[in-house]
Nucleic acid binder design. Structure first.
Lengths: 218, 218
DNA sequence: ATAAATTTTTAGACTAACCTAAAAAATATA
DNA sequence: TATATTTTTTAGGTTAGTCTAAAAATTTAT
């Protein structure tokens, strides 16, 4: 079994591994967890003894198969709880992260299986991120940044890259909702801003926004 | 804010105070928490500094008003989660305690308020124990042990004294369910066993069982 | 390729929450 | 009431997880 803290390290390494290929550096982990590199070194040694990571001094860490499965399970719990909070308890998508950070550490396989069923086996969390299955496998869909669409192309809005509450609230205000179809009406060369239509509304969004929204090409 | 461990101490003191009147002894707390008296002394000093208990050396502890409210809130969370597990996730009443022990430490007022509403503001947990309200107030109903009923008297089964999974599973096996009417058909002087009827079934139960079942006199 | 800068590790210290063993206080008993 | 027993506290130690500061290894730049 893993402690609260060990689980946080595993989850962080898991997320960092998803976009990096190479071993994860001590500093990268420290930055993500808002802790010191020396603390990371200590913990990484312990995780290595528990056989969830491979660690060679000065070389960073990689998850073992066991570590990956363990980490995916924590992410699975996090995302299932997020769905629960939004679907059943009327949380908005910018409020769920903190609470899910706590709930993800609850240890009870039955709880998670039943929750999964209660939620009708969701495949994605409220931000569009995929929920790992019981074996820790992620089904990654081919998604692109909205900024890659050309004029007159369209796609379904499927996720966000930045899931800070500021950004999510901004999307709420603009009326940009996951699952809706977005069409690019104009693309401004000057500042890469876009004129888009969503749900029969037209709106103009900056490149920064378009770089944080994922769409599935239709 | 209180740590996991501090919350467990508060909850324990709260429960012990419910049937004792006097200050709670170091040993009583240690026994309940399966820890050592010296550990209790340490923690009790810390709780006293945080103004949730009154502590005088060698005299035991009592909760302050603030401590009582804090503790009641933990109990409230525990019992609401138990209702959730039974009502929504198909746990049986003998499986919920362990998981609720973890869930009760989740910190999010909104979560608990929404959960309360989602469950339609339940007043009792699956074992018949009352759920403290938002202000930490408990509505205690007048209940009696089944063993105090005389021949031909009856009552509604409203709770259990022993909520060990062994006892709860035993009740399941016998078909004794909270909310049902129980009538005492015979009372055996020799061993204080009872012949009762519940849901049109007749069954014989020992004094030990009758001493662990609460009924509300009709 | 050597020096400078950065990253990582080590060494030593701190806090929370526990422990054991011994001392002190309270309570029970003769 | 004096003594024995029990309860509680104190003193000192342990472990997990963190920290700072210094040393060592690696990487970058000249």
């Amino acid at each position: 079994m893993f402690t609260h803290s060990e689980e946080n390290y595993l989850k962080t390494i898991y997320h960092l591994e998803l976009d990096s290929e190479k071993g994860i550096s001590t500093n990268a982990i420290a930055k993500q967890l808002e802790t010191k590199a020396s603390s990371v070194t200590d913990m990484v040694k312990k995780l290595s003894e528990k056989e969830v990571v491979i660690y060679k001094k000065y070389k960073g860490v990689t998850l073992t198969a066991f570590g990956k499965k363990t980490a995916a399970n924590i992410v699975r719990k996090h995302r299932l709880w997020e769905v629960f909070l939004v679907e059943k308890l009327n949380f908005s998508w910018d409020e769920v992260h903190e609470v899910a950070e706590q709930l993800e550490h609850i240890k009870s396989p039955k709880l998670i299986n039943q929750l999964d069923a209660f939620l009708s086996f969701p495949t994605h969390d409220p931000h569009g991120d995929p929920i790992p299955d019981k074996n820790g496998n992620l089904k990654t869909i081919e998604k692109s940044l909205l900024s890659t669409l050309q004029k007159n192309e369209c796609g379904i809005c499927v996720g966000v890259d930045d899931s800070s509450s500021e950004f999510l609230q901004f999307l709420d205000k603009k009326g940009i909702i996951l699952g809706e179809k977005i069409t690019v009406l104009e693309k401004e060369e000057f500042d890469d801003s876009l004129q888009i239509s969503i749900q029969d509304k037209k709106l103009s969004i900056s490149n920064k926004i378009a770089n944080n929204l994922y769409i599935k090409k239709a």
